[in-house]
Amino acid sequence: MDWDDAYANAPYILGADTYPERWSTEARAFRDRMLAEGRASLKQSYGPSKRQRYDLFTPQGAAEGLCVFVHGGYWMKFHRTFWSHFAAGPLARGWAVAIPSYDLCPQVRIADITTQIARAIITIAVRVEGPIVLAGHSAGGHLVARMCVEGVLPKTVFDRIRHVMPISPVSDLRPLINTAMNVDFQLDDASAAAESPVLMAPVDVPVTVWVGADERPVFLDQARWLAEAWDAAHVIDEGRHHFDVIDALQDVDSPMIQHLWP
């Protein structure tokens, strides 16, 4: 099996090279609007490094709760500033939305990023009261799934979580040992297993695993493995691939947004 090809998304998505610029442009316009309305707090710190920052967007009126979206990029790419506009759906439901960035491999290990995201959620939860929902895409799907395991978040924060949605997640990191990306990940059998949600028992919290029907077979597998291991809800989104599956987060009436609040 060609593992690098199996886990490569862009070669199988028409116009894949246009997505990052489009995301960045739409996200910047969204932040500008939110800043003009006094509803954005940007570059908020949750840790010592420059990338340990989050942007917080608030709804009109008092927030019903907090939604945290964790971005993907194989733990090696992107930044919170590419994803601001994906806050639109939760905001329209009256929820505050936080989008953190985090340090990237190979400067840190995946386990370090898990710790950083936990710290981000703890920090943001102090600022926004009420229930919490978590959503994450691809590597971000892995990271929000990791939050479901006992001991990652303190009980005072975890007890506020109402739903977790890993979107197109990597749930078993062991196959990645076979890819060229592992030069940056530096995973071995033990560290890959230690960061694989599919091998862990979740604390009792509703989980929906979401994946695009047109994704690479390995991502369909990764989503299915997690849903089966955790006895979680499993949605296969027809007509969606790895890059556009998250578009539904912008639409308050989309099935994805409706599922986030079961």
Score class of each variant (00 low, 15 high):
V245F: 10
K77R: 15
T156R: 14
G38M: 11
Y7P: 00
P255I: 04
S254A: 14
P59K: 10
I161K: 01
R240I: 05
A229G: 07
Y102K: 09
R39T: 04
T25E: 12
S41V: 08
M1P: 04
G140H: 07
H242N: 08
R109E: 12
C148Q: 03
C148T: 14
L249R: 06
H234Q: 11
Q60M: 07
Y102S: 08
E21L: 13
A232H: 06
S49P: 00
G130N: 04
S41G: 07
E195G: 05
H234C: 14
G72T: 11
F78L: 14
A145I: 07
A16N: 06
S138T: 10
S191I: 10
V203M: 14
E129T: 14
N9P: 02
I257V: 15
D251R: 09
G130V: 07
Y7L: 12
P206L: 07
M256R: 13
A135P: 00
D221C: 05
G239W: 10
A201I: 13
H234A: 09
H142Y: 03
D172H: 11
T115A: 15
G239S: 11
G65I: 07
H242F: 05
P59C: 06
G239Y: 11
R93N: 06
I113A: 01
R51L: 14
R53F: 00
C105G: 07
V70R: 01
P106C: 12
Q60Y: 07
G47C: 10
Q186E: 15
V68D: 01
A8W: 02
S101H: 03
Y102N: 06
D251Q: 13
K155C: 02
T58I: 09
P206D: 06
L91G: 03
D5R: 15
P262C: 08
D188S: 12
F219E: 03
F78S: 02
F158M: 05
D2T: 12
C67E: 03
P255L: 06
A120T: 08
D204W: 00
Y74Q: 03
P48T: 12
L176N: 01
L176W: 05
V128H: 01
V108Y: 04
T208F: 03
I13T: 12
S254T: 10
L91D: 00
D4G: 11
F82M: 12
L14N: 12
A92Y: 02
K77Y: 12
D251T: 10
V164N: 02
V70D: 02
D214E: 15
I13C: 06
V211K: 09
Q222H: 13
S191H: 08
M76Y: 01
M34T: 02
V126N: 14
